[in-house]
Amino acid sequence: MAALQTPAAESDFAAASLQGASVRFGELTALSNITLDIPVGEFWTILGPSGCGKSTMLRLVSDLIPAAAGSAVIFGKSTEEARLAREIAFVFQDATLLPWRTALSNVELPLEIGRKRGVTIPAGDRTPMELLEMVGLKGRENALPHELSGGMRQRVAIARALVCQPKLLLMDEPFGALDEMKRDLLNMQLLEIWRETGTTILFVTHSISEAVFLGQKVLMLQAHPGRIKQIVDIDLPSPREIKIRETPRFNKYCSELRALLEEC
């Protein structure tokens, strides 16, 4: 019997694969010749000086802006196909909730968009209510965004991002505006969500210790034009605890990255 040609399994593809990708805004080259593969299920953090193109990279991957040269491929598909299939979710620096909707109905928004047009919306295993519970907002589902604190709003945004069970979760300084305590708390939660859902995460941050604490790999970008400086493997035991930040290994990674950042 002739062996049937099996279609390539999803795992044959990288979650995100950039091949010589560049982004230009008029004269300015925001990203230049980026080539990298992010394997499925990994947690990468992105560090780099301000204006080096971190946000631009996430916006390229999520099909918000086109590549001027090269290609960006998500799970073997074009970024547009991945966007239409709801495989990508984005968490912005400010929660970007709709202020007239309650926490729960903000989380439900992605399920409503396209429903009347007959778009198949990949609903996750968890209902919006369960997602709110998972991010610790049980009992606050009927609160309007202005009745929630910054950290709570950001958690609603995370629940909203998870509602379609994205395979690739992009986060652009999601905890940048929070104080250290809340940031630690949400970092722990995020790691737990990551372990549970197995989604691939690309996480932009300005904080070196946050990058080391969360990432399996830290992607260091440098500016003018935005390009890869180095990809640093973070070999720390998992699951990670807050305590890990007091270990010499952790601090060694931090000082290494700080030195790299200073060279940029």
Partner: peptide
């Protein structure tokens, strides 16, 4: 930012 959210969700003009 809200419009970017709409685009990521592939929302139509009427939505």
């Amino acid at each position: 930012q809200t419009l970017e959210l709409a685009r990521i969700l592939s929302a139509s003009k009427s939505e």
